[in-house]
């Protein structure tokens, strides 16, 4: 073991009493080593603190898809929806209050917010859903499919930096139906609609009829 390895083994409580006492004395006599020990303890604390939010209890449905288990009918959204809720909460945590695509000092608006307990698009995402066509030149937010759902809402799939999802027009807002964290490096119509299988699955679950063509899309947006 090198001196350096021994130093870290001491820091991690891996040495026996004798070796530990020896290293402790060496560190105590050397301010530089003492500072290094403090920095590395701080690094460990920071890492564990940063990762603490990932310690979540197991979702009940995690083990539901076992082989041989009765399959949930493909058009039954319940099991899928609970999985979605988890994915959405992850992505939401990821995007809330986070400035996307900016590099400046002030915190810009996040892509999603909450209105009356409903998760809705806001900022550049809401603007893109309001106005952008799938054929528009690529911007920060790209639009994939536009379609109607069973409640006759206007729905659109989208890709933003860091997330992809589907939103539907509801009471003047874009209600987020699903949001999946992941690189939003989506280049075109086809990718935004089908690049992430979860987005495609969500579109399948919601859509009634065919996706809008370019003319119907423009008409639905009043363009």
């Amino acid at each position: 073991m090198t001196d350096e390895e021994e130093f870290f083994a001491w820091l991690d409580g891996e040495l026996d009493a004798e070796a530990s006492a020896r290293v402790a004395a060496r560190v105590a006599a050397d301010p530089a080593l003492e500072a290094l020990a403090a920095e590395h303890r701080e690094l460990g604390d920071q890492l564990r603190g940063a990762f603490a939010p990932t310690l979540a209890p197991m979702p009940a449905e995690l083990l539901a898809s076992r082989p041989g288990a009765e399959r949930v009918a493909a058009n039954d959204n319940r099991r899928w929806a609970s999985g979605l809720a988890i994915a959405a909460s992850l992505a939401v945590a990821f995007l809330f209050g986070t400035q996307i695509g900016g590099g400046g000092e002030g915190a810009g608006p996040g892509l999603v917010g909450q209105v009356d307990g409903m998760v809705v698009a806001q900022g550049p995402l809401a603007a893109a859903l309001d106005t952008r066509l799938a054929a528009d030149p690529a911007g920060e937010v790209r639009i994939g499919l536009t379609f109607a759902d069973g409640a006759d809402r206007l729905c659109r799939s989208f890709a933003a930096p860091g997330a992809q999802g589907v939103a539907c027009r509801q009471r003047g807002d874009w209600a987020i139906e699903g949001l999946f964290a992941g690189p939003g490096e989506v280049g075109d119509y086809r990718m935004a609609s089908g690049g992430d299988p979860r987005v495609a699955e969500l579109v399948d679950a919601l859509i009634v009829g065919e996706p809008y063509d370019a003319a119907a899309e423009a008409a639905a947006l009043g363009r």
Binding site: F51, T54, M58, A87, L90, A91
Partner: peptide, 28 residues
């Protein structure tokens, strides 16, 4: 039996996966 054993390990396993993958979606 698997579920009983797995459930208490899940939170740590999820943290470990976040440490490995670099993306929350990949971790899950």
């Amino acid at each position: 039996r698997f579920a009983r054993l797995f459930s208490p390990v899940y939170p740590r396993l999820r943290r470990f996966a976040h440490g490995l993958t670099g993306s929350p979606a990949d971790a899950d």
